[in-house]
Design a binder for these strands. Structure first.
Length: 559
RNA sequence: UGGGGUAUCGCCAAGCGGUAAGGCACAAGGUUUUGAUCCUUGCAUCCCCAGGUUCGAAUCCUGGUACCCCAGCCA
């Protein structure tokens, strides 16, 4: 795709268009997605991934995957691998451009030495608490560190000894010498390097005992990679002067442009890595890929198609304004995709037995049903019909007004893809619970409307002898508060956890064609919703389906 | 008068001085062997507020107001 694109405009695309016209970066577009491997990616990252890779794609540019791995205490290889898998699954390709900030540690060290030589950085002996005190507050300027005016020679010596491991953690810091009175606290002599012994970095092992800070590392990594547009979220806008300061002060050739956009806030979910980590670590969910999680791996296991997530990221747009996106937009994207692509099936979630009293006991018909009612090319499936069936308990009432378009005692209903039946008798146990419905079928109604009467209701069913038992997991939103992580009334967001977010059905019966369901495949269980064969729980012939999303249900609103 | 950012329909969001796109949601019809899908129609005389400039302002100017972010040796 070139610049002549149909994608909706946004302010970043406008900047790129203007840059391309003025020749600012030589007409190049080179972005990067820079995750820190300290957790799994979530829907907010998906927005950033789609933006960065999408921009590169639309303007014939490139997008790198770069792990921002400067804090070995929180990072590990598991996260690196999970992130790569998620980005790839989302449909993006970094080709040979997989990088780590740690690839540049040596270069970064050299730049730091240059800063010291230029008199732009110094080694500071203040401890953490003192550093904070010297920094001042938002409304009061800070004051200069007593170590600020060490000689260049002393700084050079100290810094090389920091690297050599002569000093203990926290005893020294390399700091930029900028302005302790800056109204922007980020400019008050920010830390460049801290000392960290006793940690093994997932990429560099124990080679280093000093690690560079984000602000220092990020801009230079961008510059080294020849990034043109360094897109990040709004909270980094205050860091932009620092981003530019490092690049200007070091007089590097490539000076990328940092552009900030607002992060996604999805209602009834959480997009904070720290809080998602808490859910996992405290066992409040079944791991990072729990289908209720807003993680990419959770959504994948839930059955959300990658294309639907990409479409969602497209629809919500990119701006700098605070937002609160309704879950309905995501749901609409999921349904739109799955309605078009998912094979149809009949599944009885909560079975009650139906006996067709006028149907021969030993007979079975192999009825043919389309895999998709609007798309013949998807083919057909065989649905066995016999004397004993299951229908859903919710699809029967002994008495109901004619708004209830399902089975009612002494009334008729259409069995989807099969015959019209009438309920003649209701059998109950001693507790009054319905155990069987005795019905009669009209043999003339297979693929034809009954003579002289209209049957408007259609319900789904499964042949008792041919259906297969399965576990069905009904998922709902994980939280029952639209903004669980910004409710100032409570001190712990977990109080907003929805206790009904998972309802497990163990007695469901699926039609025979589903026994071979491949993990990850999403089906439409007609009249119920979209369900995905679980990738972790379908084992040894056991069938487990996750509800991806329900069908739109206008009846539920009325009833 | 610490700094930075944002304010257009319930939600998201175009708009860049020429007279308010689109999507979601919602409402009303039609088709339908999924109360699904699909189709049709409706849905901001008004763009945070108040002044001003202009033939003309959501777009420019001035002054307010509200909300978000920043004081990690996290990113």
């Amino acid at each position: 795709m070139s610049e002549e694109t149909t994608k909706p405009s946004n302010f970043i695309r406008n900047i790129i268009k203007a840059d391309n016209e003025s020749g600012k970066h030589g007409g190049r577009v080179h972005t990067r997605f820079p995750p820190e491997p300290n957790g799994y990616l979530h829907i907010g990252h998906a927005k950033s991934i789609c933006l960065n890779f999408g921009l590169a794609n639309d303007y014939d540019g490139l997008c790198n995957l770069r792990f921002d791995d400067t804090n070995p205490q929180k990072e590990n290889e598991e996260f690196v691998n999970a992130i790569k898998e998620d980005v790839r699954w989302l449909g993006f390709d970094w080709q040979e451009r997989l990088f780590f900030s740690s690839n540049y540690f040596e270069q970064l060290y050299t730049y730091a030495v240059q800063l010291i030589e230029q008199g732009n950085a110094y080694v500071c002996d203040l401890n953490a608490e003192q550093t904070r005190e010297y920094r001042g507050t938002l409304t009061e300027p800070g004051k200069n560190s007593p170590y600020r005016d060490r000689s260049i020679a002393e700084n050079l010596d100290l810094f090389s000894r920091m690297r050599a491991g002569e000093f203990v953690d926290g005893s020294k810091l390399l700091r930029a010498k900028i302005d302790m009175a800056s109204p922007n606290v980020n400019m008050r002599d920010p830390a460049l390097y801290r000392i960290r012994h006793d940690v093994v970095h997932h990429q560099t092992g124990t080679e280093w005992c000093i690690y560079p800070m984000y602000d220092y590392t990020h801009c230079l990594s961008d510059s080294i990679e020849g990034i043109t547009h360094s897109v990040c979220t709004l909270e980094f806008a205050d860091h932009r002067p620092l981003y530019d300061w490092f690049l200007d002060t070091l007089k590097v050739e490539c000076h990328p442009q940092q552009i900030e956009f607002s992060r996604l806030n999805l209602q009834y979910s959480i997009t904070s890595k720290r809080k998602l980590t808490k859910l996992v670590e405290e066992g409040l969910v079944e791991g990072w890929s729990d289908p209720r999680m807003s993680t990419i791996s959770g959504m994948r296991r839930r059955g959300y198609p990658a294309a639907a997530i990409r479409e969602f990221c497209e629809r919500i747009g990119v701006t700098k304004s605070d937002n609160s996106v309704e879950m309905e937009i995501l749901d609409a994207c999921i349904r739109e995709n799955l309605n078009e692509n998912a094979t149809r099936a009949m599944v009885v979630l909560d079975p009650v037995k139906v006996i067709i009293t006028n149907y021969p006991e030993d007979k079975t018909e192999e009825l043919i049903a389309p895999k998709h009612p609007q798309n013949e090319s998807m083919g057909t499936r065989v649905v066995p019909f016999s004397r004993e069936l299951y229908i859903d308990r919710a699809d029967f009432k002994e008495e109901a007004n004619n708004k209830f378009k399902r089975l009612v005692k002494d009334k008729e209903v259409r069995l989807r893809n099969a015959y019209v039946i009438r309920c003649d008798e209701v059998i109950k146990d001693e507790k009054g619970e319905i155990t069987e419905l005795h019905c009669s079928y009209d043999p003339a109604t297979l693929g034809a409307n009954p003579e002289g009467r209209k049957v408007k209701g259609v319900i789904h069913w499964v042949s008792a002898a041919h259906g297969v038992k399965a576990e069905v997991r009904l998922y709902d939103r994980l939280f029952n508060h639209p903004h669980p992580d910004s409710d100032k009334e409570v001190d712990d967001f977990t109080v907003h956890l929805n206790s009904d977010s998972l309802v497990t059905l163990t007695e469901s019966v699926v039609e025979r064609s589903l026994v071979d369901a491949q993990a990850g495949t999403v089906y439409q269980f007609e009249r119920e919703g979209y369900f995905c064969a679980d990738s972790e729980l379908c084992r040894d012939g056991k069938l487990v389906f996750n509800r991806t999303v329900t069908l739109r249900d206008t009846w539920a609103k009325i009833a």
